[in-house]
C-alpha cells in the first residue's frame, strides 16, 4: 500500500478546511499556516498508525489545538496584533470588533471557544482534546464569554 499517495490525498482534500480552523484558532494567517503545516508534518510521521487506528482529521485538529496552546503561547505575547487585512469583510461592524477581541484572549480560552462554538464539540470532548477536566472547560469558557460580554445562554443549557 502506498501510504504517501494516501496521505497526499488527505492533505489535498482537507487542507483548506484545516487552514480555516487554524485561522480561527490563532487569529492570523501566518500562524494558521504554521499550525496546519506543523500538524500535517506530524500527521505524516504518524500516518500509517493514525490512518489505521483512528480518524486522521481528528488527530490533526487535536495536534493543532495543542500546538496553539503550548508552543505558540510565547510568541503571541510579543506579536499580539498581527494584521487582519480582511478586516473590512465582516458584514457587521460588531463582528469585526468581536473578532479583534477574540484575538486578544489567552490561547487556552480562545481554544475552548473555538472548539465549542466553531467545532461545535460538547464540553466533555473539549476536555479530552485539551487534556483538562470538564469543570475547567466550563470555567475557561465562562471567563472568556464574560470578557467578550457574551450572554451565556447556550452555555447554561449544556
Amino acid at each position: 500500500m502506498d501510504h504517501t499517495a494516501d496521505f497526499d490525498e488527505f492533505v489535498r482534500a482537507r487542507g483548506d478546511a484545516l487552514l480555516r480552523y487554524g485561522y480561527v484558532l490563532s487569529g492570523n494567517m501566518e500562524d494558521a499556516a504554521d499550525l496546519v503545516q506543523e500538524a500535517l508534518a506530524r500527521l505524516g510521521d504518524a500516518w500509517p498508525r493514525v490512518r489505521r487506528k483512528d480518524d486522521p482529521e481528528g488527530y490533526v485538529r487535536t495536534t493543532m489545538v495543542r500546538l496553539h496552546i503550548n508552543a505558540w503561547r510565547r510568541r503571541h505575547r510579543e506579536d499580539l496584533v498581527a494584521a487582519v487585512p480582511e478586516n473590512g469583510r465582516f458584514d457587521r461592524y460588531d463582528d469585526a470588533d468581536l473578532w479583534a477581541e477574540l484575538r486578544q484572549l489567552p490561547p487556552r480560552q480562545r481554544a475552548v471557544l473555538v472548539l465549542r462554538y466553531y467545532e461545535d464539540l460538547p464540553d466533555d470532548r473539549i476536555a479530552e482534546v485539551l487534556g483538562v477536566s470538564r469543570g475547567t472547560v466550563r470555567s475557561q469558557a465562562a471567563r472568556a464569554l464574560d470578557k467578550l460580554r457574551i450572554a451565556r445562554v447556550l452555555q447554561e443549557a449544556r
Binding site: 487552514l19 480555516r20 485561522y23 480561527v24 469583510r89 458584514d91 477574540l102 462554538y117 466553531y118
Partner: peptide, 9 residues
C-alpha cells in the same frame, strides 16, 4: 463571527 472569519482564511 468565527465562521465569517474562517471564511476569510
Amino acid at each position: 463571527t468565527l465562521r465569517t472569519a474562517a471564511g476569510h482564511a
